[in-house]
């Protein structure tokens, strides 16, 4: 018998006896602790199925209007030490990109070919390491910034949702020291349930091989629990939205 069969057989054997529903134990307020009395046992499939949509009612609150969601995203991004800016026009955005390039003295950037990222690279006017048709990892590592698009911005958490398809592969958003995201304002979604619904609607069943919620620049607290940015991934995260 294969290990697969053996493990599945052990699981099925073990599940012959049902376990009490969670929360049936240990509630303060003096409910007796009855352990495995017959009343505490639930049949394997009985009971209410917590719809994941239920989660929305418990998660941090998000306002209904675009303005509220935008303000929340901006606040979260600031808390996370990400640089978020919303621009009225593409012209304003490319001016700001140029200022960023000059302030940090970017010599070369890495990016992928998509509408916004290509336009951004044109505005940057620096040699580009494109990831679309394979790339040299050492060359990307030498880049000063990685410029990508994204799938969504999540107001609830200040996160950027990227995938291997929307953001030029797996490494582009983590290898260069500065990750620059160019997003459209229509990409702002309210919360995590909405972001997962978006992934399902956009990709299922052929999901990209990597989907990542990026919530602020890379960080660690492994030395005396003191926050340091840029542990392995980017030290800086810039989100320019138009």
């Amino acid at each position: 018998m294969s290990e697969r069969k053996k493990i599945l057989a052990r699981i099925r054997e073990a599940l012959q006896t049902a376990a009490p529903r969670p929360g049936s134990h240990a509630e303060p307020g003096g409910k007796p602790h009855t352990g495995l009395t017959p009343g505490g046992i639930a049949a394997r499939s009985a009971g209410h199925d917590p719809a994941a949509s239920e989660a929305r009612r418990w998660l941090p609150k998000v306002g209904g209007s675009f303005e509220e969601q935008l303000a929340l995203f901006a606040q979260n991004a600031a808390d996370l030490k990400a640089n978020f800016q919303l621009f009225a026009s593409w012209q304003d955005l490319s001016t700001a990109l140029g200022q960023l390039r000059d302030a940090e003295n970017w010599q070369r950037v890495a990016s992928h070919q998509a509408e916004l990222s290509s336009q951004a690279c044109a505005a940057l006017d620096r040699p580009v390491c494109w990831t679309d048709r394979g790339y040299d990892v050492l060359a990307m590592e030498q880049c000063d910034a990685g410029v990508t698009e994204c799938d969504a911005l999540i107001a609830q958490t200040g996160s950027v949702l990227v995938t291997s398809r929307s953001a030029g592969g797996r490494a582009l958003s983590v290898l260069p020291p500065h990750h620059v995201v160019i997003a459209r304002r229509s990409q702002l979604v309210a919360d995590l349930p909405a972001a997962f619904a978006l992934l399902q609607a956009k990709y299922a069943p052929e999901f990209p091989s990597m989907m990542s919620f990026i919530t602020g620049p890379s960080r660690t607290g492994d030395i005396e629990r003191i926050l340091v940015l840029g542990a392995h991934g980017p030290k800086k995260l810039t989100i320019f939205c138009v």
């Binding site: 003096g30 409910k31 007796p32 602790h33 009855t34 352990g35 495995l36 009395t37």
Partner: peptide, 11 residues
């Protein structure tokens, strides 16, 4: 008495 007796005498 309140919480563990019922478990101690279950069954």
């Amino acid at each position: 008495v309140k919480k563990f007796y019922p478990e101690l005498f279950a069954g």
